[in-house]
Structures are given as C-alpha cells and as structure tokens.
Amino acid sequence: MEISYYPGCTLKTKAINFETSALALLEKLDVKAIELKDWNCCGVMFSQSQDNLMKQLAPIRTLIRAKESGRDRLLTLCSMCYNTLKRSALFIQENEDKRDKINDFMDLEETEYFGNEIEVVNILTLLDEIDKDKLKASIVKDAKDLKVATYYGCLLTRPKEVAIDNVEDPQIMENLLEAAGCKPVYFPFKTECCASFQVVSRKDIARERTRKIVDSARKNGAEMILLACPLCEYNLDKLQKELHEEDSTFETLPVLYVTQLLAILAGVDPEINDYSKHYIDPRPVLERKGLL
C-alpha cells in the first residue's frame, strides 16, 4: 500500500524518533509512506483558535500538495498536524464562501482545493486498519506482558468531529499493543491534557499535569507510557525529569512513541531509536524485557 506522508516540522527535529520508528514499522507492514514534496508547517493549533482565514492558508496549502501527489490519503504522525489538517479540511468543506475566498487568495497555486479530496489519516488509524493477524505475524519479539499506559492527550480525540476513536475512552492504542503482546493498564488519565504550550508560560500547570498523569499510570502498574504526540512527549518526558530532580521520591516512567516500541517488537534494530533524545532513559525497562 502507498500513502502520502506529511511529516511536519517537529518530526524532523525533536521528534525524529517518531518518524524513523514509524517509517521503519510501516515498511515491515508493507506500507510505503511517500513524503510530500515542498511541504510547509501545518500552521499548528493557532490556525484553529482564531477566526482568521489567513491562518487556514498553511494547512490548506499542505492539502493542495497532497492533492497534487495524486494519492487521496495523507498520513500524519504528529497529532497536532493531524488535528490542524483535518479541521482545516473540514472547515473549508463546510464553508463554501470561505473556501472560495481562500482559493481566490491563493491564485498562484495551480490546484484548487475544495475540502473533501484528501482524507487526513493519523498513524494510529492507519495501523488500526491493518489486519490484526498481519500485525501479530509481524511481531517477532516477545514483549513479556510489558505493562503500558496508553496516553492520547487531547488532540487525537478532540474536538469530536476529528476524533480518531471514542472521545472519552479510545481503545485504538490498546488494541494495537495487545495484539503486539503488551498489557495495557487501566489508565483514567489517558485523554487528560498535558498542558500543551502552557509549558512555555505557565510551567507550574504543565508540571502538575505531568505529575498527575504519571502518578496515575504508575499507580496502575504501568512500566512505561506510550503516546503519539511530540508535544505530549516533550512535556511528560522533560517535566518528569525536572520533577524528579526537585523531589527524588517522585518516581519516573519512561515515555516512548508507540511506534518506537512497536518497531522494536516487529524486529527493527532497537538502535534506530536515538535514546539520547529521551529525558527519562527507556533502556533499563526495555533491557529488563529483553528488547534491546
């Protein structure tokens, strides 16, 4: 299977582990993700928070690139890119006059975009579509019932219109990980917000969130937290380190992109992950399970 792939900025820098592991995993599953040519920043969440058409331009331009690729689905890894692109597509699909305005404004583009040509697909949705038996067959390493907390944050399930699964109790990650031999734990904080960009201006809030989320995961027996969002990863990973430095009794949990673990289980060389990018080193847990 072939699918267009939109990486987004973070995936080439801080979240490089997400990209390399996801692409390697998809290869194992016979999915060819073809990176879009000439892509730009998705426009990030800001585009959705204000009623300003200017802010829709970046995501729509990306959708135009996708349309030009000739493939009708566009894969995103970053949940923020997913959320932005999907909502923009929906926005201009539902607002004809604004759509025309945007197309008029971007008259240098050779292609017009109407709203329903491209289906924006999140990596978790794509993995979920793959037959579970096929997924199981591709798993070569025994996870030995590794206990995982599956963290979705906000962007994958909110707003409802773009949710990849049940808004309140998504199960996609759990199903994938169960098929791969892991044991997802009860994790009531899985859709709780990580505080997102508040980490810049109100770090105290972000820290409190991290403490709550990690505490809940650990209390329910998780050995690591798995997620699919670069910003959540940054917050939960980095802030745990800070919390621990302040208070050594705070017990940390490693945080990995779900694709990092799945790729290892599917037989990708564990060294594909750049472990130096993690603030809480996940290697001890992986080693304990014999996964390195």
Binding site: E168, Y186, P188, F189, S216, K219
Partner: peptide, 11 residues
Amino acid sequence: SKLYQDDDKIV
C-alpha cells in the same frame, strides 16, 4: 467531567 477508580475510591 469524569469518574475514575483510585485505590478503593471513586474520584
């Protein structure tokens, strides 16, 4: 907004 189990309590 939400209920969850924490030890033997419902939060």
